[in-house]
Amino acid sequence: MRAEPPRESIPTPPGPGPREGGRRREKPPTYPGSAFQVRKPLGRRANAWLALGAFLLPLLAWCAVSYLPFVWHPMVTVSDPGSVDYFQKGMQVERHEFREENRKAVAEGRPQASGTRENPVYLPAPHLVAKALVTAFRTPPQRAGDPWLHESLGHSIRIIVLGFLLSAVFGVPLGLICGSFALASRLSEPFVDFIRYMPAPVFGALCVAILGIDDAPKVAIIFIGTFFQMVLVVANTTRGLPPALLEAAQTLGAKRRQLVMNVVLPGVLPLIYRDMRILLGWAWTYLIVAELIGASSGISFFIYQQAKYRNYDNVYAAIILIGLIGLLTDLALKGLGRKFFPWEKEA
């Protein structure tokens, strides 16, 4: 009745075969244009190089813009104001303005101003940002009461972990129940869907009014931002479990409770884990909002402060730090996932 294509009796692993013992490895045949085959995987080495390239290309572009003056450099930093009365030493002016003033000066026989082409102050060169990254943790805050960078980061991470754990503790079970029982799904999901569309920041003022100005409203924002998404995502993932597995379990004598605990839960856990990794990224987005309500704090406050002092190298350093923390967390979680769920095939 069900026509399915015949499957091979022995599944072949995707990608290149097992490595041969010796040094000589068969090179897979290549065809012209084989790098651009639709949905064909590349080799392991190629993947590693490309991953490196994914970071190197933007870095190269940044270097080009920073170190090759002819690429962009729209500003001129004045080194000698000459006869232009409002120019000052060290001041940045736009290039066309600088040229215009010098043209006037030549026309009127006055001494010209001189200066060097530079990028705007908000785009520091890579080496400056790199230096800031190294020194940021050793530089005391500008004002005595302000937190150090590591204190700001620590505070941010604490807020994220608290808020995200809180929504996972409630969101994952609720999502599982909604995904398993139509009654729960129909009763809760429409309302959850309704709230989901309200941007979490709109609850900021309310949270402060109810929870005070310290960390509680910030944790609440992270919670609101992730909880409702989480319920729907987990419910959908749960519903994606192949019904054939449930039916097989039923014919093996599993009753309702056993179905949920012994089939649904282990069946969707790896997928929910993957969902959590994605949602953790969302939590960082809401963090930026959360930290600016009530008493400002954390890494976003640090970034705003540094921008105010025009220390843009520190701003970039902090942003890159957030990215690095996110990337490393995700890699760590991915590795842990392989430990937790050894039956999952390599994706």
């Binding site: 399915e4 054939a244 039916e247 039923q250 014919t251 093996l252 004598g253 089939v263 282990p266 039956w343």
Partner: peptide, 20 residues
Amino acid sequence: AGPGADRGMVFQEYTLFPWL
């Protein structure tokens, strides 16, 4: 009335639990 362990079933699609 409903599935039970007295009637074992084997399906065409593979229904082994992948996590076991």
